[in-house]
Amino acid sequence: MPHTMQDLRELMEDRSAGAPHPPDRLGQVRRRVRRGARVRAASAAVGTAGVAVAVGAFLTAAPGAGDRPRPASGPTAVELSPPRPGTPPKEGMAPLGDRFLFRAGEKTRLRIVPTGRTTLLTHRCSAEVAIYEVKDGELSGGGCSPGGEGFASYLATVPGRPVTLDLVALPSRAPEPSGTKDLDAYLAAHRPVSAAWSVHVYSGTCTSETCKAPERRAGVQGSTVTGLKRLARTAGKGDGRVRTAAFTSSGRSVRLRVACVDGTAWAIVRVGGGTPRMVGCERAESFGVTWDQKARAGVRTDVDVRVLPAEVVPGKRTDPAAIENLMRGVAPAGTWTLEVYDLP
């Protein structure tokens, strides 16, 4: 052998030794995480669910004051205050108003009437808190660091069509809720604490790169199923297990949309026992990937779908045994939705 194993090891050590060190890799990763959260937040408004929220908070109460159960109560409805004169637009969007709130640990229902196709919520805070939003029964959210970028939520909206959000600020010591049930359980078990937090809302035509993509996608991909009758819907986790939905189309073709979020990446879709189709849905996030498929009018048709997490890289084989093999030792991740629409 012309080279020894030692040569190979030394070569890899030498070649990889000149790694450039970016000044702040952790900061870059955090920015990418936040950007991903914002994109998902905006996309959720277009299609499926899950919105990252933007609220600011300033906790003023000592923790522990309210750790006693309390009767569940509904959200407190609030309206936006008119924007202060001279409030500048943000990212090309005009200020709709703001709202200063003074309690954490309870739901606040905010009603917004957008004036543009994008609505932006921003927050300010001077203490570490976690802010959550419940929209259409789905929970999402994140933290707010004092003096940091905080969270911003870009919603794809229809001018004049009201949007209602439930906002909740939780002390950072509170356990992170994994869903609305967790959140409601926490709120029922703890009394609100005094806090001051603010939400600032803008709406209009977004000019920043951050929200350009969601807005553009809302106009293109989001509209591909607009006005079509939904025939079937199924959803699940990215666990490789097969789910089946059935539909009966009125025409000779249907439109399918697969939306993947939070770590699901590949959908294997089989319509009417035909050839399975591998759909890479990770890049489209929850905007979804849409395509048309032939169908037999008036005939009940099954559509089978298996969705794999991003951790898995599928090969050419898509049979159940191959999928089971791929999923061996892989934890399910993310969620997905498959919808079938009628194309008359």
Partner: peptide
Amino acid sequence: LAEDLLQTALVKAWRA
């Protein structure tokens, strides 16, 4: 590409 790959992996790891 390596930096991009690493950051992508770290973002995915953050989620999980």
